[in-house]
Every structure is written in structure tokens, then in C-alpha cells.
Simulated assay, not measured.
Amino acid sequence: MKKTALFIGLSTVFFSLMEITLKSAGNAFNPIQINWIRFSIGGIVLLPFAIRSLRIQGQMLHWRDLKLFALTGFTCLVVSMTLFQLSISYTQASTVAVVFSANPVFALIFSYLILHERLGRANFLAVIISIIGLLVIVNPANLTDPVGLTLAITSAMTFGLYSIISRYGSVHRGYNGIVMTCFTFLVGAVELFVLIEITNIPTIAHAMKSVGWLSQFSAIPLFNNVNMHFFWMLFFVGVCVTGGGFAFYFLAMERSNVSTASLVFFIKPGLAPIFAALLIGDKIVLTTIIGIVIIIFGSVVTFMGNRRREGTHAKMGAD
């Protein structure tokens, strides 16, 4: 139990510092470039754990799995994480951290719409509570940062969609979370690499540069500012956050259960804004504090509902 608590603690701290670390890099890295760097590193860090898991389960990857990982990699890295990185450049890291932590709520909605899974009373209540929390943080009546918040919410929504696609693939292919995540990262990084190379084709680069909002996606660099000055930042987001954070999360899941491990995402909305205020001076306004409390309450409802459902399944299995 002590090791489980340690794994959850480390994963929570790493994930809570993610937005702050990326924000501190400023404009040194292109959003797609930093995603390619950190998920390439994260996938490599997870690879030994994934190989070990495959050997223990007596499984092998097949070429047909490439389509699955291409889909999860595209949804997670190319779409969700690009939107996530862009949102950090437009709004406060603490706001992005809280909004993105609501991605399990969107996953519940997609599981109902796509997988036709029953949305229990606890989960339905959690969805309502979390949406209210998001509305309090966004504050539509006095919206001063529509772009950043829209990007953050869309990132959380698409990450929730990725979670459902990944779960669907996991059930049908029999791969556990760490295998799905590792190869999602690696294949998604290849997709990002191809996308980066396409933006460096002169005609495409010129066309994108002529469109204002697309200019930052013109001629995306691969290794610009990858030097000793940013070494520790890249090491932290690649090895500690993207690789270690997920590794510790899945290790906690192996030693306990999904609900216990998911405490990581329930604690983050409260912890990340505190880190942001202490480390980079983010201001936490009253509406944000209220929204955080509401979202955490919604997360607790989700947690209790999941624990109750797992307990019911375990009892039925024992019977």
C-alpha cells in the first residue's frame, strides 16, 4: 500500500507540474515541436515497461494494430495535445490544468454515445457537477479569454474521446493501459514528425505563412532550442512527466485498481493551481477557486461511483 501511495503521489506531482513547466518555456518551442519531443521521449521511457507487460501476458503486436495506434496517436498527440499546448500559450497554466482535468467527464459522455455504456446515477451527477464547475471558471457573462479557454475545453474533450478509442482498442485487442499508451505515444510521434516535415515543404510553408493564424505552423523546427539551456525543462516534461507520470500511474493501477489510480486526476485540479501560483505567479481569482472546488466535488462523485461499481462487479464475480 505504501508503494501504491508513492506511485500515486509521484504521478500526481508530475502531472500537476506539466502545464507550469510548459508555460515556463515561453515561445522557445513550437507547440507541435514540443509535443514531438516530449512524447518521443515519453514513449521511449515507457517502452521497457510495455515490452515487459507483453512478455508477461504472452502477447505480440501485429501489423493490424498499427491502424489502432495510428488512430489513438492522431487523436491524442496530433489533435488533443496540440490544442492543449496552444491553450497554454493563450491562458494561465492553472486554468488549463483545471479544465483539462475534466477530461474523464467527457470520456463518460463519449462512452455513453459511442460504446453505449450505461451512465450510472453517480456518473451522470458527476458530469452535471463538472460542467457547472467549468462554466463557473469560464464565466460566460464576463469572458475575457475565449480563445485559450475554448482550446483548453476542446483539448479535454478530444482527450476524453482518445480515452474511449483507447479503451475500445484495449478491450478488442487485449492490450493493457501501459502498452496502449506507449505505442500511442511512439506512433503519434511518428505522425507528428511527418506533419512537421510537411510544413517544411517550401510551397506549403509559404502558403501557411500567408495566413495569419497558421503562420506558427509554417516550417516547424525539429531541434530548435534543443540545447543545454532548456535541457532540464525537456528532461522533466519528457522523462518525468510524460514518461514517468504515466509509468507511475499504471504501476499504481497494477498494485491497486482503476479507481484508486484515478485519484491522480482528481487531486490535480486542486494541486496544479497552487503550484502555478507559487512557481510562476498565476493569479487565482475567486470564480476559479469556486470552479476548482466544484470540479473536485464532481471528481469525488465519479470516484465513489467507480468504487461502488467495481465492488459490485467483484461481488458478482465471487458469487
Rank of each mutant, 00 (worst) to 15 (best):
L263T: 05
S94W: 05
I290C: 07
L151M: 05
F185G: 00
G177R: 10
S24Q: 09
S89M: 14
L149R: 04
F74E: 01
L77D: 03
W63L: 14
V226Y: 07
V237A: 03
T12W: 02
L135R: 00
L47D: 05
K283M: 08
V171W: 02
L161D: 00
H313S: 14
L149D: 01
N200W: 05
A277Y: 09
T312Y: 07
T12F: 02
P221W: 05
Y249P: 00
A70C: 14
G148Y: 07
V293W: 09
C240F: 13
L263N: 03
G281M: 05
S155Y: 06
L83A: 06
A252P: 01
A219Y: 04
E197D: 09
L46K: 03
K67Q: 08
M81N: 12
I137E: 02
S259Y: 01
M18Y: 05
Q59S: 12
M180W: 04
Y90N: 08
L263K: 01
F39E: 06
P202I: 04
I8D: 00
L61C: 11
G291F: 01
L279S: 05
M316Y: 13
Y162W: 14
M233P: 00
L286S: 10
N142S: 15
T203V: 12
L66D: 02
I178E: 11
T260Y: 10
S259V: 06
G120E: 01
V138H: 06
L10F: 15
F124Y: 06
G73Q: 03
S11M: 10
R308M: 12
V147M: 08
T260N: 11
H62F: 05
T288S: 06
Q57W: 11
Q85V: 04
L68A: 07
T260H: 07
F266I: 11
N200Q: 15
I137L: 09
N176A: 13
G298V: 00
N103W: 01
Y249G: 00
V138Y: 06
F223M: 14
C240G: 07
T12D: 04
I196N: 11
G291C: 05
E117Q: 14
G177P: 08
H62M: 05
V293T: 14
M60Q: 13
